[in-house]
């Protein structure tokens, strides 16, 4: 056996996971270079076995939990922002609808006059009355959405 043939299995011999055959044993007994390589490999193996594991610093777990919370907070902020934008868009739509309705009824051209306003209010009521169910459902949905928002905001635990 030549040194080059033994060299790739030196580590296996050093850590005991490879079994040297009679030929390898004979070569090792008479070869100073391979013996030296073997002792180096054993030294490395033993040092690796003896090495102590570096311990994490004392505040490690708290640091991880803080980062998890920050990450969660950022994710929640993104969801909140989307929800807030949706609510704002909804409110804007309702206001725009109200203004449009008032415009179509000519209310925006009326001077401040109680009698005229009351009459206009009655007319508006008359027009809106058939849509009461739809408006009620829309109001309920809006209330539920706002309630859900409040609940999500309040539940800030993990």
């Amino acid at each position: 056996m030549r040194c080059e043939e033994l060299e790739p299995i030196i580590e296996g011999l050093a850590d005991g996971t490879a079994d040297p055959g009679a030929e390898a044993r004979a070569h090792l007994a008479g070869c100073a270079l391979c013996t030296r390589r073997g002792s180096q490999a054993r030294a490395i193996h033993e040092l690796l076995v003896r090495r102590e594991a570096p311990a994490p610093p004392p505040g490690f777990t708290a640091g991880v939990m803080a980062r998890v919370q920050r990450q969660r907070w950022r994710a929640e902020r993104a969801v909140d922002l989307g929800f807030n934008l949706a609510v704002a868009a909804g409110v804007l739509l309702i206001v725009a609808g109200g203004v449009g309705l008032a415009w179509s009824l000519g209310l925006l051209r009326i001077q401040a006059n109680l009698a005229v306003l009351l009459e206009a209010g009655a007319r508006l009521g008359g027009r809106v009355a058939p849509q009461a169910q739809t408006i009620g459902v829309a109001g309920l949905l809006l209330t539920m959405a706002l309630g859900l928002w409040w609940w999500a905001e309040a539940d800030s635990s993990f």
């Binding site: 311990a55 939990m65 635990s157």
Partner: peptide, 20 residues
């Protein structure tokens, strides 16, 4: 299920391996 104590326990259990 969002149990913060459980995740803390997980970190405690594996921080040695990961940090080392």
């Amino acid at each position: 299920n969002g149990d913060e104590t459980a995740f803390r326990e997980l970190v405690e259990q594996y921080k040695g391996l990961v940090f080392a």
